[in-house]
Simulated assay, not measured.
Amino acid sequence: MTTLGCILAPYGNPPSRFVPFARTAEAAGLDEVWLWEDCFLESGPSAASAMLAATQRLRVGIGVMPLPLRNVALTAMETATLDGMFPGRFLPGVGHGVQDWMGQVGARVASPLTLMREQVAALRALLAGDRVTTSGRYVTLDDVALDWPPAAAPPVLAAAKGPKTLRLVGEIADGVVIDGDSGVAGARRAIALLDEGRAAAGLPPVADSGPGSEHPFRAVAFAQAATGDGAADRLRRSLARWDVDATSDEVLADHASWGSAEQVADGLRRFAALGVSTVVAQPTLDDPDLDGFAAFLGEEVAPLLR
């Protein structure tokens, strides 16, 4: 079964929109809502906490929290707190962050790959209840352990786009977040590179690492989608914001799904066929009715995927 979610992007959505949207998504039957912790908008964990408290079963993921912006002990504390209050419903994702933004706050690092390797290893260990002492290039912990670690550690997901990062994520993380500007072809390339990293670590490929496997790996893909009047034009404008030229129908079809519930479901199935376990629909930034889009996904698209 394909898990279906929806993104609530921070652009144009003030903090007051987050709780009502979460309630709408849950009422519509969606499995997950995903947030972005983009500078200098809403905080990921605080927004996730409010959304989790306002719902009963909805899972909330952050894709992603920028590693250079955060001390790993703080990320572990926030994740463990949310999991303790809402067991199994918070999905933490981390990533390099936008380098220009990291530079604006004096947090840009010389080696993002080293930072990711050190932080993900420490975060996974802390969430597993381990007592950690380490002295790396960026992460230093001296006899640190969480007083309230999760009863079952949540998967630590990491965003990846470049080949080196994708291989690293396959090697060290519990899952991946694939950007919404990747498209189907980009997601296929990403999974091949993830598999290279997993093979180097002696782990099975993504397609053989679903829930219940000995070494589960959760592949989350953000997928551009739209419905209603002008859907294709809105998708082209949205993709242009991510530097994707979707003027040709071929590029648009690779990067997005639009139209009726059946058409959108068919488009999202392309990601599931690659081994993606969770497809998160990314609405256009100028979607005229986000609540209606969430209801469309939950009530009409999700049953087709299940």
Rank of each mutant, 00 (worst) to 15 (best):
A225C: 07
D143C: 09
G292I: 09
D83H: 11
D142R: 12
E300L: 09
P155I: 10
Q282S: 10
A246L: 05
S248H: 07
G298K: 01
D233T: 13
D243S: 15
F21C: 03
L252Y: 05
R23Y: 11
V251H: 03
M102V: 09
C39F: 15
G63Y: 08
Y11L: 13
A295Y: 01
L194V: 04
G5V: 03
M1L: 15
G275K: 05
S182N: 13
R306T: 12
A159M: 05
E171T: 05
D83C: 07
G267E: 06
W242S: 15
C6H: 09
F296H: 03
Q282H: 14
R189C: 13
A76Q: 04
A160S: 11
A295P: 00
G228H: 01
G44A: 09
R189E: 15
G210M: 03
V120A: 05
A219H: 03
G292F: 08
D31W: 08
Q99L: 04
G129S: 07
T81K: 04
I178M: 15
L123Y: 01
L146G: 10
R189W: 12
A221D: 09
L290N: 04
L194D: 01
P92K: 07
A76L: 10
M77K: 11
L304E: 13
G29C: 09
D195R: 11
D289F: 04
Q282D: 11
V206Q: 08
G84E: 11
T2C: 12
E78H: 10
P303G: 10
P163H: 01
